[in-house]
């Protein structure tokens, strides 16, 4: 499989999955109880497609997403069962060292709140360049130049100046762009975006969603998008998986799921979503 094949719209059911989650179960073992956060989840992410995982709080969508790079806190998290296949390898069985080579390089993540994922004490440019120095062994000058280019690509004005600034000097929208630049600078084949626009104002959200879509079209990476917002799903996803109480209750093409939902919970979720009717 080549990594930079331009994407075609929609996913073909026959497309080879770049990432496959099979029968995943994740438990959180607390002092007195065990919470079964993820119960036998299966997801296939094809190259170049955007698969949205949508659900309400407690549905297990974030626990599922974090499992891919084993980022759930252990303890209390226990990966109780299943496989997560990437390049023919089960990510759940890799050593920390093997997984560390994949994190940020082949599979990257963007989180809801950039302020908690960016280091407040380091300049943003250095944080974007870090991936390249760590994974690619680039020299400092090479990595810095690539980082400036990455900031430019995500639409940050005056990237040379921004490169030298600290996270607190940037607005929420710019910080989220920095996060995306840092995630994409290593040219990952899979981008996992966990509520990437939830903390943003609606006009900034629109810009970030458009940016994610255009970057995906340019680089052809697969995107696993975690969100609670069906509006965001409709605007960005090719396929959608609806999660409820730790299970995937429905998976399908966005058009099918939105217009011919098969599952009762999906129907209720769609009915509860307020829509702006301007006609």
């Amino acid at each position: 499989m080549t990594t930079d094949k331009p994407m075609t719209t929609g996913s073909k059911p026959t497309a080879e999955p770049v990432l496959e989650i099979a029968d995943l179960s994740v438990d959180f073992r607390l002092d007195t109880t065990t919470v079964h956060a993820v119960r036998g989840v299966g997801l296939r992410l094809a190259q170049g497609e955007t698969l949205a995982v949508v659900g309400e709080s407690g549905s297990g969508k974030t626990a599922t997403a974090l499992s891919v790079l084993r980022l759930n806190p252990q303890p209390p998290c226990v990966y109780a069962g299943g496989r997560i296949l990437f390049d023919g390898r089960d990510l759940l069985t890799l050593s920390e060292k093997q997984l560390g080579a994949i994190r940020g390089q082949d599979i990257a993540m963007v989180f809801q709140d950039p302020m908690t994922s960016l280091d407040p004490l380091r300049r943003v440019g250095a944080q974007v360049a870090e991936v390249l120095r760590h994974h690619r062994g680039l020299s400092r000058a090479e990595a810095d130049a690539a980082a400036v280019e990455a900031l430019d690509e995500v639409g940050i004005p005056d990237p040379e100046r921004r490169f030298r600034q600290y996270p607190h000097e940037l607005s929420g929208g710019l910080r989220q762009r920095v996060m995306i630049a840092g995630a994409l600078v290593g040219r990952p084949r899979v981008l996992i975006a966990d509520e990437p626009t939830t903390a943003l104002d609606v006009t900034v959200q629109r810009q970030i969603l458009d940016l994610l879509v255009s970057l995906q079209e340019r680089h052809g990476m697969a995107v696993l998008l975690i969100t609670h917002d069906l509006g965001v799903v409709a605007e960005t996803a090719d396929r959608v998986a609806v999660m409820h109480q730790g299970r995937v209750v429905e998976t399908g093409d966005v058009l099918d799921v939105f217009h011919r939902p098969a599952d009762d919970y999906t129907r209720r979720l769609l009915a509860a979503t307020p829509r702006l009717e301007l006609a």
């Binding site: 969603l209 917002d229 509006g231 409709a234 996803a237 058009l255 939105f258 217009h259």
Partner: peptide, 8 residues
């Protein structure tokens, strides 16, 4: 800017 929950 409001995302429309309708893929069409």
């Amino acid at each position: 800017a409001v995302p429309v929950p309708d893929p069409r």
